[in-house]
Design a binder for these strands. Structure first.
Lengths: 240, 240
DNA sequence: GACCTGTCAAGAGCAGTGCTCTCTTTCCTT
DNA sequence: AAGGAAAGAGAGCACTGCTCTTGACAGGTC
């Protein structure tokens, strides 16, 4: 899961891999039920029938456990969203965008604590290590893919004139697109990205209380409408 | 601060109010430095020179302390944003919107832990009591105010046709506007609201790493551009 | 002025946490 | 079979939130 230990050779290696998986599994269940704050190494140890100090043979510390769960969560979300997006015809770019949005929301509602772990308040004193950035960018890459296809098909909206300092500010993400997306479209894409996760975060973290009706149907209708609004900001219209 | 104990009469009442304020102050400092997760009643007690059990005379429990800090944070944010917005000419609606956005962001950058407390992952097992909803809606009310003025001035964009279920989903927030804002405009306003906080949350929680350049100037230029983009979705244009 | 009552600080204690260190057992390799 | 590495167990440290009891003191009343 973390640094793939090649193929397990000896029985000991196998046992080690199995127990590590068991620990991760127990941790995942705790996370799903009570959230990251309540995740305790001792409770996990109890679940797998070990004494607390024994888990330290498998996991260096609590933060490392969290890192594994974070990567796990990003991968779980990424897989779900990629699958949903791939089921839509390539030329239906609005459909692809909406599929991504609804897949993210569906996953978030099904795994609220995992969502909070990766998109909520960062764990204090915890700095996400480099190995998280790969899994973390799977959803973004899908979105950029739509921008690239939109540009290639010539359907992208005419770029606005931009202040050079604004264009310079998004230099990092422009590298991902490697010149295949205009500055202006990338900025619109970033707005859609922030809007997507901002809306889901608000819904999940309770900011829609007294704002949007709380029934599942209302929430979904609202979300769908807002995502279409974001899509039209990208120039993705019904007439695909 | 919580339930105003009228005017302190006896010396005892005065002492009690003073010590309570001292405790809150120490808690606020801890929150600002280490964040909500690290906020411990014992540490607060040490700061004010008391033994841990003594604080329980003044604060029922840790959650109650958090509630007070949450209300505090909402009020602090609300005051800053209201002041910034009120400094702009009423007819300059784009200016008012941008003033709100930049004020929220400025406050968030200056008080990251307070921001995380109110807009980040909810504290597990903690349900925000009713007395937080007043302070919590100060920013939203300013935004709605702009929508109302926009409508009254006749400058609002022509409403799109809406699916009735979408319009129904935002019934709660429409009550705040009391018929002075169309369903369509309110939905656009909600998108701006989510976009504003989504962008700030992303910036603060590290999601812009490798996406937006990390210098203060780049971040601000980017933010300003994104907020103008949101404003144009509301029909707020330069030519106010 | 004496007395009762309510308030408050303090201490001990419970159950829990992350993590380290040491000791013993187990199992794999040579 | 022997040596050594890996794994489990236990004790312990320094914390946490929270409760209960004890003793000191101040406020208002008789």
């Amino acid at each position: 899961m973390t640094t793939s230990p090649t193929v397990p050779r000896t029985a000991r290696d196998r046992a080690r891999a199995e127990i590590t998986a068991e620990i991760l599994d127990a941790a995942r269940q705790h996370l799903a039920r009570e959230g990251a704050a309540a995740l305790s190494l001792r409770a996990v140890a109890r679940d797998v029938g070990m004494v607390s100090s024994a888990v330290y043979r498998y996991v260096p510390n609590r933060d490392a456990l969290l890192t594994m769960l974070i990567i796990d969560a990003y991968d779980s979300l990424g897989a779900v969203v990629e699958k949903a997006e791939s089921a839509v015809a390539r030329e239906d770019r609005l459909g692809r965008f909406l599929a991504i949005c609804h897949a993210v929301r569906g996953w978030a509602l099904a795994h609220p604590h995992e969502y909070a772990l990766i998109y909520g308040t960062p764990v204090p004193g915890y700095a996400a290590p480099e190995d998280t950035i790969g899994p973390a960018s799977r959803v973004s890459l899908l979105l950029i893919g739509i921008l690239v296809d939109l540009t290639a098909s010539g359907a992208a909206p005419a770029p606005d004139e931009l202040d050079p300092s604004v264009a310079a500010s998004i230099a990092p993400v422009l590298e991902f697109a490697d010149g295949r997306v205009s500055d202006d479209l990338m900025l619109r894409g970033l707005a859609a990205w922030s809007g997507l996760f901002g809306t889901i975060t608000f819904e999940l973290f309770g900011q829609f209380h007294n704002v949007v009706a709380s029934s599942q149907r209302a929430r979904k209708a609202f979300f769908d409408h807002q995502m279409r609004q974001l899509a039209s900001g990208l120039g993705l219209d019904e007439a695909a």
